[in-house]
Amino acid sequence: MIEKKYKVPIRNLFCILCYVHEMPEVVSAFNSKDEDLPQLHLLAKLFIEETDRIMMRGLMKDYHERAEETNQLSGKILFEQSLNHIIQKKPSLVCEKDQFDEDILINQILKATLNTLLKIEELPKNQKIKISMQLKKLHHVSAINLFRKIFYMIRLNRNKVYYQKMLLLARFIYELNNLSDEDGAFDLIAILNDEMKMQIIFEKFILNFYRLEQQQFLSKIERMKWRMFGGNLAIIPEMKTDISLIDRVNKEKIIIDAKYYADIFSKSFNADKIRSTHLYQLFTYLNHSSDIYLTRGILIYPTNGVKVDEIYNISIQVGIEIQQSTIRIFTLDLNQKWQDIYNQMFVLLK
């Protein structure tokens, strides 16, 4: 069994995922009390508010297959289900046809989550009354049992994007409500041991944090052109940053390369060294960054027992000139209080 090298409290993981899904207001609500876990009554309040917003906009409708007994042939005949009708010589068959309405999986998850909340004894009476009113409006949506895999069955297209917050809150509520199951499973924790998933999450968290929490820099993914000419440029790979922070007023840029690695060091002659490929990559970004912006680089890792904060002076090309800049190698401690993580993200830019 591989020992976990990351210590990330569940609350902090929730907060990180909220930024990934562009929900900073949910993080503010989580931190109203200094507790290890977001409380279900708080999540219930947020979920009720989000359900109201969805209902005001209008429940999503889509085509889905529906089986029904009918005496008029339409759609596809389900012979196995119709066999008893044929044997009993009933003037009806079971047919499956496409139907366009609100009884689709995404609305069924919404309804199932409301039903889950209604069964929680500690929930305030006013919240239960509100939930009951919302459920009455969903009488035409089928009741289903929630299970973990069902959340992976939803694909949000442009028309369904306003359901995004509801789905994330529904997932949080499901996970917290199932902490007491016999197997004690908490699936979100498994994400921490999946470096490929956490790499994407870590990058997007940093990108969205700076986009949503400050106004000095424009936070974006930046595509750069190689300073190469001649030859077949079509075979040259794309150069794309994880996070570029651009201050157009002060002509300043920061390129952040985020790496979620179990071990930030590699061994070289029995000595710990930062991985050379990471430095090569960031150094290349800095030398291709801009003709007008002085760019500095930050290579950031999550802390896994080793704290690093080192700043190195380097020379980079800005247009046709060589100028002095810096590369900072930094480890972000995700095991501290969320407010400390929040503050540390701003200190990193100074």
Rank of each mutant, 00 (worst) to 15 (best):
residue 342 Y to N: 11
residue 253 K to R: 15
residue 206 I to W: 06
residue 86 I to G: 01
residue 180 S to D: 15
residue 88 Q to N: 15
residue 46 L to Q: 12
residue 291 D to Q: 10
residue 72 Q to N: 05
residue 223 R to F: 14
residue 197 K to R: 13
residue 121 E to H: 08
residue 287 N to R: 09
residue 205 F to Q: 08
residue 23 M to K: 01
residue 337 K to Q: 13
residue 195 E to G: 00
residue 270 N to H: 09
residue 226 W to A: 07
residue 232 N to G: 03
residue 193 N to R: 13
residue 333 D to V: 05
residue 54 I to R: 15
residue 185 A to Y: 06
residue 328 R to C: 07
residue 97 K to D: 07
residue 159 N to S: 12
residue 317 Q to D: 00
residue 133 M to V: 03
residue 210 Y to T: 06
residue 58 G to N: 13
residue 55 M to H: 11
residue 19 Y to W: 07
residue 17 L to M: 15
residue 11 R to Y: 09
residue 222 E to R: 14
residue 137 K to S: 11
residue 49 E to S: 13
residue 224 M to G: 00
residue 92 S to D: 01
residue 332 L to H: 08
residue 343 N to C: 13
residue 346 F to C: 06
residue 268 S to E: 14
residue 313 N to E: 07
residue 296 R to M: 06
residue 302 P to F: 10
residue 48 I to C: 11
residue 282 L to M: 12
residue 136 K to T: 07
residue 64 H to Y: 10
residue 258 A to T: 10
residue 257 D to W: 07
residue 157 N to V: 03
residue 10 I to D: 08
residue 307 K to L: 02
residue 264 I to W: 03
residue 303 T to L: 02
residue 267 K to N: 13
residue 52 D to C: 10
residue 85 H to V: 01
residue 286 L to G: 04
residue 26 V to W: 00
residue 26 V to H: 03
residue 60 M to S: 11
residue 146 L to Y: 10
residue 45 K to F: 06
residue 256 I to D: 00
residue 24 P to C: 06
residue 95 C to S: 08
residue 86 I to P: 01
residue 167 L to A: 02
residue 209 F to K: 10
residue 246 I to D: 00
residue 97 K to F: 02
residue 156 L to Q: 04
residue 148 R to P: 00
residue 75 G to V: 08
residue 55 M to N: 14
residue 265 F to T: 01
residue 194 D to F: 10
residue 254 I to V: 14
residue 301 Y to F: 15
residue 56 M to Q: 10
residue 333 D to G: 03
residue 147 F to S: 13
residue 19 Y to L: 01
residue 164 Q to T: 06
residue 274 I to K: 05
residue 223 R to N: 14
residue 166 M to F: 09
residue 235 I to T: 10
residue 156 L to V: 05
residue 185 A to H: 04
residue 54 I to N: 14
residue 124 P to S: 09
residue 36 D to M: 10
residue 229 F to C: 03
residue 179 L to Q: 09
residue 122 E to L: 12
residue 187 D to N: 09
residue 122 E to P: 00
residue 84 N to V: 11
residue 191 I to Y: 14
residue 81 Q to H: 13
residue 9 P to T: 09
residue 17 L to W: 03
residue 188 L to E: 05
residue 326 T to L: 00
residue 177 N to S: 15
residue 232 N to E: 15
residue 98 D to M: 10
residue 275 R to L: 02
residue 220 K to H: 13
residue 77 I to D: 02
residue 252 E to A: 15
residue 306 V to S: 11
residue 39 Q to F: 02
residue 210 Y to V: 07
residue 161 V to D: 05
residue 278 H to N: 15
residue 184 G to M: 11
residue 342 Y to M: 01
residue 136 K to H: 10
residue 174 Y to G: 00
residue 17 L to A: 06
residue 317 Q to M: 14
residue 171 R to M: 14
residue 86 I to K: 12
residue 37 L to G: 02
residue 281 Q to S: 11
residue 46 L to V: 03
residue 297 G to Q: 13
residue 262 A to R: 13
residue 106 I to T: 05
